[in-house]
Every structure is written in structure tokens, then in C-alpha cells.
Write a protein that binds this DNA or RNA. Structure first.
Lengths: 189, 189, 189, 189
DNA sequence: GATGAATGAGGGTTCATTCAT
DNA sequence: GATGAATGAACCCTCATTCAT
């Protein structure tokens, strides 16, 4: 199975950034991981920071892509909220390493690239806010501040990257179901 | 106002770590902030890492201290859970900078010191689990996995350091009240 | 004349260590000597200490290599002892700088590398002891303590690095001959 | 038993210099050893280097003092040479630590102080040369180069600081006797 | 005499990046 | 595309020495 070299590098970087953190990972480390000299890496990447930006960018857009369609589904807010939670869980638990880099290391980017990621994350948040807002307006959810409510749910779901363990007794789906209960229960009228 | 020099250094470090991150903050930066030569800092600190450890340690113990008494209160689980949420919010919003260093940068510590912080954070989590477990056993809360439920609440409350803004329209207390509604609502039978 | 860069560095280090001592020689000094930035040195060496270890190691093994064959020659002990003295003199006077680093600076190595050098020097001493012991057993030398006798000769021969001067009136060979007279004279029955 | 503070400091320095070497011993180390703050040390010493100079100076003068009277004794050269050897052994084995500092570390002194020690050591050597020269002129010793002969004996006797071990089976006196045999044997007609 | 805060220069080492081959 | 030598700046930290108290 031939793989794109850039993707191989990005994957190695994700693995290493996740394990040691962005700053503690040297370009040499990444090069070693893909059997290249560190000078050769620069045929594929513009800089170490660019690499982090790409990873974070891919990650947040991965979160956003599907959520957009969920938001626009012709379904009740609670149904869409459940789907959103399952979707989010799917990505976090499906690639904890990448999610960790996004949620923990992306802030290390310098101003301009950092702004790009923050903007994308804000956009992602807004999808959640939209769902919650819809539910409140429809009388499906209790009245409240839709942004705070969304932040509460998203916070709980993001935090998962900190404690999720592939060897746990519960499947991601079971956990997501439980989270749906907890959060929907808090919202519903 | 006479201040302890070590505390002044720690405060400066917290400010800088929060703003730029641990690795991007140089010892020189800290020294500049307290008007000392960087060599002179070493009269007060053993190393940059030790300083981070102290900060993280003080922070997590600050969280733990009061929670212990809350857990042991002779009150209903829901009442204690509300108090725990308010207490947590109080610390996070009272010192977002320090909380950020704890929740975002402490993982940069090397193995041994890292373990110390992780252990303290686990202990803190266990207090939350205890409250939730009490509530479930007493039939006050719906049945469920107390650890997952605690992680859900704590995740939502921790995430606050990411978005809390002193200039927002709502006071920390108001936000905490709302979070109580949301999370208690999800738990209660 | 193309030279290996590592050897060029080692040679520069030997020259500088000899002149100023190990600690008083900075990595910068060595880099200057070979027209490199000090950071660039680290393409060739692992650390300053490693460099010292390599130098000392090469030096002591240079002493040992030939002595081993001398010890095993099918000749009288006195003949072999003379050859050993000449051999030792040849190396000391042929490269006083390197010998100085071995005999004067190698003790600055930290525990583990230091042990390595000490062990190699012990082995070298043992070759001398062997010759002396052979001579005593064969009745060629007066009875006595072979180790002390070897230390006496080796001490006298090592000390040479302290006073030998290329501009002296006597050649190394003449001096070695004289030392043979003195020490053989003290040993022979 | 009240001791002079300066001597206590010098003694501590000797112990530490011997164990770790001059450069690896910090002023703080010395201060710790005498229960003083390092700032306070400077009431007693002018500088770390001055301290090394004092130690080396005391040491070499200790060697010289008695040798001068031995040289001038109205005795045969061989008798005086034996006494010189015993005297040298006595000092080396009586205070290996100080001798080590003299013979190993004194070269670290900067130019001017270094010259002072080298001059004193030269003077000490000259006493030995004088004895040997007397013996040669008197026909007591074989003809030869008195300076080289003295360097041979002195080298052997100096080297002792490298291997002498208080727990050895032989007493210093026994070893010195043996060295007398070996070296006188090489000299005598 | 003793303290300990402060200095300021220098230490060895790491590292992202460049570029001639 | 790949190499690896070289850069140059920055890094954390140490240390002998000074000096006000």
C-alpha cells in the first residue's frame, strides 16, 4: 500500500506531537520516524509550524464537515443534538492523537495561523449553538443562553481526549449514549 | 506593599506561561518581568521546570482543598454537587491564568513531576465521583456510571478556562448557576 | 591534504586541552580552531566530555597496542623491559600533547567514562608487571615486589610528559637509553 | 580544639580539590564544608585561585624545607639520596590529598601564580640534582646526566600520589626502602 | 564577622532551517 | 528527491565575586 509521503510525515508528526508535545518534538524526531534526513523533510513541509497548522486545520475541518449537514437536517433539535454528540465522540475517540494535537497544541501557533484555527473552532462552536438555539426557540429545550449551553456540552465532549482509553470497558458509542442522556436531560423541558 | 519575591516570580511565570506557553517563555522573560538578571532567578527557583511544578501543584491543591470539605458535608448529593460546581467556577474564573497553566501546560513536565500532578488531579476527580456516587446510591440521581458522569461535569467546568472572559455580560456566579441547572437537570431522577 | 573532520577537531581539542586544560577550554575555543560555529561541532561530537573520552581512549590504547606484542616476545625480561621503555618514550615524546591530556586531564571525566580509562591504564600497567615478574621468576632480576617495581619505572617514564622539551640537547632515544641503564641497573641481579 | 578558620577552609578546599578537581569544586562546596555562606568565605580568602595558590605554595615549600638541610648534610651522596627519598615519600603518603592538588591541579593557576609554583618546584628539583651531581663527581655514582637521573627518581616518587593507598599491605617506609634499592642500585657504580 | 541577594559573563547544548552537492 | 554539513540564535543554568545590611 503506497501512501502519500506528506501524509506519512503528518501522521508521524501527530503521533509524536501527541506523545511529547509540539515543542519537545524535534524535526529530527519526525525525520527519524519516516526514515528521512531532517534536511529532506523540507521537500515536503514548509516549516515545523506549517505542519502543525496543517494538522490542526485538517482536524478541525474534519469536525466541522459532517456537523454542517447535521445542523441542517430536517429533524428535531434534540435529535440533531444527539447526532452531533455521537459525531463528535466518533472523531475524538477515532483519532485521539490528532484531537489532542488540535485541542492541546494548536495554541502554540503564532498569531496569524493561530487565528485561523481559532476562527474555524468558533465556526464549529456556532453550529452547536445553532442547534441549541433552534431547540430553545421551538420550545423543545428549556429557555437559557444557547451559547453557554453549547459550551457546556462541547466542553464535556472535548474533555474526552484527556481520559478516553481504548481499553476501557465501554465502547465509544455507549459513552456517547450516556452523554446524550446527561446533556439532553439537562436541556429538555 | 511588600511581597515575597518567590511569589512575585511565580506570578510573573503564571502570567507569561499563560500568555505564551511554557516552552515559549524563556527564563529571561521571567527575569525581565521581575527586574532581575536571569542568573539571579536561580536564588529563588531550582529550575524552570520546578517552577512549573510548583505552580501546577499549588493550583491543583487549591482546587482540592475546599472540595474535600464539600464532599464530606452532611447534605444531599445535589446540594453538594452544586457547591462543588460553584467552587470550581470560583477558582477557574478567579485565576484563569493559573488554571490555564495547570490544565494546559502541566503535561509538559517530565515523567516524575508529571505523575505527581496527574495523581493530584485524579484525587480531585475522585471527590467529584464520590458525590455523584452518593447521589446515585441514595436514589437522588438516576442510575449510571458515576465516573463518566463526573467526567462529563468536570469536563464542562474545566473547559471554562478556554472561553471565560472577564468582560462578559454574565458574572461567574450566574454562569455557575446555569451550569448547575444543566448538569443537575441531567442527573436528577 | 584532505583530513577527516573529526580528527581535525580531536587534534584541535588535544592542542587546547594541553595548553589550557580541559575545563579552561571552551567548546567555542575548539570551534574557533577548526573554523566552525560551536553549534556545528555537535555534528561531529556528542559532547565535550565524549571528546575527552575519545582522546584519552585513543591515547591509552596507543600505549597498549604495541606493548602487548613486546610482552609476548620470546626474549629475556631485560630485553623486553628495554623495549617497553623505548616504546613508552616514543609515544610520550612523539605526542606530548595527547599524553598530557591522558595523564593529566582524563581524571576529569565523570564516573563511568573515568572508570573505562582507569581500567585501560590498569591493563597497561599489568603488561609492565608481567615483564618484571617474568624477570624475577627467571632469576634475571633481583627478587622484589613486581608491581612496585613496575610502578617505579612507569612513574619515572610517565613523568616525562612534564619536562620533556623538543628543543632539548638530547634525543628521545638517548634519554630512553639512559633511563634503561638507570632502571635496568636497579633491577638486575 | 580551636582551629584557625583559614586553615579549616584550606583543609576543606584540599579535600574537595583532591576529590573533584579544582574547577569542579565550587566556592559554594567549600563554604558548605566549613558551614559558612559563600559570601562569608571572602572574609578569609581573596579568591578561589588565591586559595589554590596558597595550598600549592604551602605544599611545595613543605617538600623543600627539609630537603635543603638533607642536601647540606656532611654525608655521602647515596646516604643523602636515601634520606631524600624517604623524606619525599613521607610527605606524599602523609598527605596524598595536598600532594595531589600540588601535582595535578596547580597548573590550572593563571600565568603569574603558576610561574611562582613552577619556580618553587624547579628549586626543589635542583636540590635533587645537587645530590646526584655530588655523587657523580665523587665517583660514588656512575657518570651520567645528573638532571635526567634526578628527574627519573623524582618522577617515580611523584607518581606515588597516583597509586598510593593507605590500606595497602606495605607501609610507606617499606615502599620507600624498596624504591631506594631500585634507584640507588641504578646509580651506584 | 556573617549574610544572602544580586550581578554579569560565560558555560555546554539544542534546534529549525538552509543549501551545495 | 535526498543528503548532511553548516549556521546562528536561543536555550537553561552555573558560578566567582561584590556589597548593603
Amino acid at each position: 500500500m503506497v501512501v502519500n509521503k506528506y501524509d506519512e510525515i503528518a501522521r508521524a508528526a501527530i503521533r509524536l506531537f501527541n506523545k511529547k508535545g509540539y515543542h519537545a518534538t524535534s524535526v529530527q524526531d519526525i525525520a527519524d520516524e519516516v526514515n528521512l534526513q531532517k534536511g529532506s523533510l523540507y521537500h515536503y513541509i514548509a516549516s515545523k509550524e506549517e505542519l502543525l497548522l496543517q494538522i490542526a486545520s485538517r482536524s478541525i475541518h474534519g469536525f466541522s464537515r459532517e456537523l454542517e449537514s447535521i445542523v441542517n437536517l430536517e429533524e428535531s433539535a434534540s435529535s440533531r443534538l444527539q447526532k452531533a454528540i455521537h459525531h463528535h465522540f466518533g472523531i475524538v475517540t477515532g483519532d485521539v492523537e490528532m484531537t489532542t494535537v488540535l485541542l492541546r497544541d494548536a495554541f502554540l501557533l503564532s498569531d496569524e495561523p493561530h487565528r485561523i484555527i481559532v476562527a474555524a473552532m468558533d465556526e464549529y462552536l456556532n453550529h452547536w449553538v445553532k442547534i441549541v438555539d433552534d431547540g430553545m426557540n421551538a420550545g423543545e429545550f428549556k429557555e437559557g443562553d444557547p451559547r453557554l449551553a453549547a459550551l457546556s456540552i462541547l466542553g464535556a465532549c472535548n474533555w474526552v481526549y484527556r481520559w478516553y482509553n481504548q481499553n476501557g470497558t465501554k465502547t465509544p458509542k455507549e459513552i456517547a449514549d450516556y452523554f446524550c442522556d446527561l446533556h439532553l436531560g439537562g436541556m429538555m423541558r
